[in-house]
Amino acid sequence: MLRRALKVVLALALLGAVVVFVAQAFPGLVGADRALTVSSGSMEPAIPTGSVVFVDDVESSDVEERITEGDVITFVSGDNRLVTHRVVEKYTAETSVRFRTKGDNNDAADPEPVYRQQVVGEVLFSVPVLGYVIAFANTSHGFLLLVWGPVLALVFSELVSLYRAGTATRENDPE
């Protein structure tokens, strides 16, 4: 009974590791265009540091229709960093649209408006802690532990089961 439970736990750990890596590497499988790791606490508690946000790209021509106040967007800041903040105000003029953004955990709105050309996309959802797991998995120790550990444990468990089955057969086999 304990062995069976251990096998299930190991199989689920391996499956979880695979799902995590596949979703992050191929965000299209979960309906997103890109997956980005959050490296600051500006959006806490809604999106904690170390989360992965799954972003649906928005074409510049679609920004005005798709993005509204309250949406969380990813945009290119003035210093060419990707930033994920909430839209707190939308300004529409005849020929342009711009947004005032703010991190949920920040006291003030961002100093510069975000123009339609800067918008990368809209955040569909986030997965807390996943960024930390991916960062750890990208180290040699993390890869060994998170990927090869469950694989080797499952193989070892199966070999032990085969050995025990063979031993039981020989003990019950009258010669």
Rank of each mutant, 00 (worst) to 15 (best):
M1P: 12
R3M: 02
R3V: 03
L10Q: 08
L10N: 12
L10P: 08
L10S: 12
L10V: 11
L12M: 09
L12T: 10
A13V: 10
A13F: 08
L15M: 12
L15S: 13
L15A: 15
V18G: 03
V18C: 08
V20A: 15
V20F: 13
V22P: 09
V22E: 04
V22M: 06
V22G: 05
A25K: 15
P27Y: 02
G28M: 03
G31Q: 05
A32S: 04
A32R: 02
D33F: 06
D33Y: 04
R34A: 14
L36R: 02
V38E: 00
S39D: 09
S40Y: 04
S42A: 14
S42E: 11
M43I: 13
E44Y: 10
I47V: 14
P48W: 04
T49K: 14
S51F: 04
V52T: 06
V53H: 05
F54K: 03
D57S: 11
V58I: 12
S61C: 02
S61A: 14
D62F: 01
V63A: 14
V63S: 06
E64W: 05
E64C: 08
E65C: 00
R66A: 12
I67H: 00
E69G: 06
V72Q: 06
V72C: 04
V76E: 10
N80A: 15
N80S: 15
R81I: 00
V83Q: 00
R86Y: 02
R86L: 00
V87P: 01
V88W: 13
E89G: 09
K90L: 03
K90H: 04
T92N: 11
A93M: 05
A93L: 09
E94T: 15
E94M: 12
E94W: 10
T95H: 11
S96L: 14
S96P: 08
V97N: 02
R98S: 15
F99P: 10
R100D: 10
T101N: 00
D104Q: 06
N105Y: 06
N106F: 10
D107Y: 07
A108T: 15
D110G: 04
P111T: 13
E112G: 08
P113T: 14
P113H: 13
V114Q: 00
V114N: 00
Y115L: 03
R116E: 14
R116P: 00
V119E: 04
V120H: 00
L124T: 01
L124S: 01
L124A: 01
F125M: 07
Y132A: 07
Y132N: 13
Y132R: 06
F136R: 11
A137G: 15
S140T: 15
H141D: 12
G142N: 09
V147D: 05
V147N: 07
W148D: 03
W148H: 02
P150F: 07
L152V: 15
F156N: 06
S157V: 01
L159A: 05
V160M: 06
V160N: 01
V160Y: 03
S161G: 13
L162D: 08
Y163W: 12
Y163K: 07
R164V: 07
R164P: 01
A168W: 03
T169E: 09
T169G: 00
R170C: 01
E171A: 15
N172A: 15
P174A: 08
